[in-house]
Computed example of a mutant assay.
Amino acid sequence: MTYTITNAVRGGLLAAAILVAGAAPVQASHQHTFSGDWLYLTVTHGDGRSGDMRGTLLLCDPPQGHTRAAEACEQLAAVDGHFERIPPMAAICPMIYAPVTAHARGTWHGKPVRYTRTFSNSCEMATLTGPVFALDG
């Protein structure tokens, strides 16, 4: 009897695994259909493989989805969506290495956007990206 139940459980687990594996490609091919400028922003604290990651969707027509959406959209509009052109803010940051990786993907003025940069710490990231990656509020 135990042999039959064990085989039934294994068969059920195998069937569930096949269903999950079959559903994955459908999700991967999902296309975003947001209108206007939008970016999915993530910030990963620590090692990228095991760090704490936070993310949000920034919509700019009208600004929403981000705790500082209006400021972030204004900042990005001023540099035409080019993160590396954001003017640095004046700040004194500690010389502590606590890596933070900022990542953005989406569309800005109809063009695809991909941005990834690892900063020495959160202070450096805030200084160089302003409100864009301020996902904690």
Rank of each mutant, 00 (worst) to 15 (best):
L19D: 14
A21R: 04
A21G: 13
G22Y: 01
G22P: 12
V26E: 14
A28P: 06
A28F: 07
A28R: 12
S29D: 12
H30S: 14
H30N: 14
Q31C: 12
Q31I: 11
T33M: 12
T33Y: 08
F34M: 13
F34E: 10
S35C: 00
G36Q: 05
D37V: 01
W38R: 02
L39S: 02
Y40S: 11
Y40M: 14
L41D: 01
L41R: 02
T42D: 04
T42Q: 08
H45V: 04
D47A: 14
G48T: 14
S50E: 15
S50W: 11
G51C: 12
G51L: 12
D52I: 02
M53P: 01
R54V: 00
G55Y: 10
T56G: 10
T56V: 11
L57H: 06
L59Q: 03
L59N: 07
L59S: 06
C60N: 01
D61L: 00
D61Q: 02
P62D: 01
P63A: 02
Q64E: 12
Q64D: 11
Q64I: 09
T67V: 06
T67D: 14
R68D: 04
R68M: 05
A69W: 05
A70K: 13
A70D: 14
E71H: 06
E71F: 01
A72W: 01
C73H: 08
C73K: 05
E74G: 13
Q75F: 06
Q75N: 09
Q75C: 08
A78R: 13
V79C: 10
D80P: 04
D80H: 10
G81N: 06
H82S: 14
H82T: 11
E84M: 10
